[in-house]
Design a protein around this nucleic acid. Structure first.
Lengths: 362, 362
DNA sequence: TTTTCCTCCGAAACCGGTTTCGGCAAGGGA
DNA sequence: TCCCTTGCCGAAACCGGTTTCGGAGGAAAA
């Protein structure tokens, strides 16, 4: 092994100075070679690259940041306040982002906040300290204070979801409205005439979009919109049960119910069971999200599944493009949810595995 | 407003140079004043502090890092491979860490990995790039490659869990073994003589600890350890169901079963129901974790709950202490799980809300 | 042969902080 | 009065990178 040492005695890290010394070049030259400046001879460039590789040189992100202004980090602020429960795919989502980020040697900085104010304050702090170069905004609202902040500060961002005013906004979203519409059509095509809808939290954009999908679906199958068949604000199993009870206790009760969240659908299962209604034959149910519990429910829940990992990866890529200057108008994507047809929306009675009465259960 | 401007024209940030200029001091003096060096007059110090506050000065973390070697960031590498499902409290956990971190103006860098190798590689990258000052290690194994890496690299870390060789290890853990032992005693005290145990994944430390708790509990109530009553490797509902079936199909089947994970307990519910056994009267069940679904199960699941948010916060604080030089031996904590007594382990039949047969359910 | 133009690299400034070092002035002791 | 501390601050080096600027040298054009 050639004499590459010493590598900055103290820390044990190999710095650009070590590299330059080993190569017999000026450190500025090495830097430009590594960063693809055009005024470096091809032979030199490859020599530098090889030696850097061999010596295991890794630029110190923060040293670069101080000059370039790039921390090489993506920011994600999670709202951990209140009903934080319904976040079934956080690990997958993080994985998607993190994997895409590390492909470019970027990292992911995560923070949490209790409420909207806290979210904005936390983001402001991350910006002031230049800890991140841009943000991924999950759970967008129709009017979103986070977007206002980032717009005025001029910090790049990308939405997981949509918002009322799309100015300056790049986004990736799942077309929940198409899924809900398809669900209505699917049920309508099977003869259902009273189709209920249990929506999620009204302040989020997705809720109004899915309501739109519901209405469009009704129109497509020639059914009138009946206000009493739509409920709002069910994001947990308990809330789904409550709202389900309201619908099932209607004089002219629905024969099918679509839920904007699988969690709510599972709550609805319980409401139905308590009323002696069999999911499938007596009440068709379709959910949305694709949580794993749905597959194990009785009967298994038909649902439109979201690929959170893929969404995270796409969001990271869009944010990279945004940071590098692509106009937000060119960074807007809508991906479809994927239908997983199982037993909860078909009339045949789901065969109970061994015919025993189900007394004790989730 | 006094003339504090200009604040570094280009970026709009106020730097230490702006501050020094506004104060008429050398920037080195300002830095020392802010960092509590003893050779600064008290009057000067407070003047600097006030002006910094008023001008909204925030030191650039990466500029500090390059000299001090401190990125002011905590690292967390999540394993997102395979059976990643059973991570019910990730948001809470992140919240605990993040909140404790931001109290000291630190941040949290999250990465993901598919498997153990990937974990180690990812951590090595974060270390080489000096992106983080220390790691929180969730899901510790008896023999853990991550710990070996950090030991040899001399990077501070703290375990959420324990490990075979505690050298250099600080940790915070929940005493699952005490909980399981208490569960056995609780059941034994009610006359149960055949008490089963469905454990989690064997490679993790917690599994062997909880097995130890199970054995101790049996000894405490004077019962022999029966190998056929113990199953291993159930971390999901489906696996819990499978292992539950094995136990329930035993010739001399258990009258009570403890599950090392609530998820498995919910699977066990289904296995029992399929066999016509009522949870409570026919089979006592106790879980561990405290997932919200347990509260909504029929009957509600008795369990030992873990406070993930508090654990995250403690881990962050321990890691701070570790980074600042406290010896690991002084940074080891064991917190108890909290019993939530509900209906699943008592003999009285849990009153079904409205007496209807439960056919369709999760 | 001289001039001009590239190509390619070295030198030095710079980014925003921290830390070391030295010196001035005031205060205390002899 | 003189000397020696001590308290307090300025100046400058430093951290590990990036970027600007200018010039040496070779090739092409005149």
């Amino acid at each position: 092994m050639p004499r590459d040492l010493p590598k900055s005695a103290a820390t044990g890290r190999v710095t650009i100075n070590d590299l330059a010394r080993a190569l017999g070049l000026a450190k500025g030259t090495v830097s430009r070679a590594l960063n693809g400046y055009p005024d470096i001879a091809e032979t030199t460039r490859s020599r530098v690259a090889r030696t850097a590789e061999r010596m295991g040189y890794r630029p110190l992100a923060q040293a670069q940041a101080i000059r370039t202004g790039r921390a090489r980090a993506l920011g994600l602020v999670l709202n951990a306040g209140g009903d934080a429960e319904h976040r079934p795919f956080l690990t997958d989502f993080l994985d998607g982002i993190s994997r895409a980020a590390s492909e470019e040697s970027w990292s992911l900085t995560v923070a949490t906040a209790r409420d909207v104010e806290d979210e904005v304050a936390t983001m402001a702090r991350l910006i002031d300290e230049r800890k991140v170069d841009g943000f991924i905004l999950p759970r967008t609202r129709l009017h979103d204070a986070r977007i206002d902040l980032l717009r005025t500060k001029g910090v790049p961002f990308v939405l997981f979801g949509r918002t009322a005013d799309p100015t300056d906004c790049a986004w990736h979203d799942i077309s929940g409205e198409d899924a809900i519409k398809a669900a209505v059509i699917r049920l309508g095509g099977r003869g259902h005439r009273r189709i209920g809808f249990i929506n999620g939290a009204a302040e989020y954009t997705y809720a109004s979009l899915r309501e739109g999908g519901y209405r469009e679906g009704l129109e497509a199958v020639g059914l009138p919109f009946a206000p009493e068949l739509m409920r709002v604000g069910a994001t947990t199993m308990a809330q789904g049960e409550t709202e389900g009870e309201v619908l099932l206790d209607l004089a002219d009760r629905p024969t099918a119910i679509i839920c904007a969240l699988d969690q709510a659908a599972l709550g609805l299962y319980r409401a139905a069971r308590r009323r002696g209604l069999r999911i499938g034959p007596d009440l068709a149910v379709i959910g949305y999200d694709g949580i794993p519990e749905g597959a194990h429910a009785h009967p298994p829940l038909t649902t439109y599944a979201v690929d959170s990992r893929a969404a995270g990866a796409r969001l990271a890529k869009l944010l990279f493009a945004r940071i590098r200057g692509t106009a937000p108008e060119h960074l807007r994507e809508l991906a479809p949810a994927r239908l997983i047809a199982r037993g909860s929306d078909i009339a045949e009675c789901y065969p109970d595995p061994d015919g025993l009465p189900d007394r004790m259960t989730t």
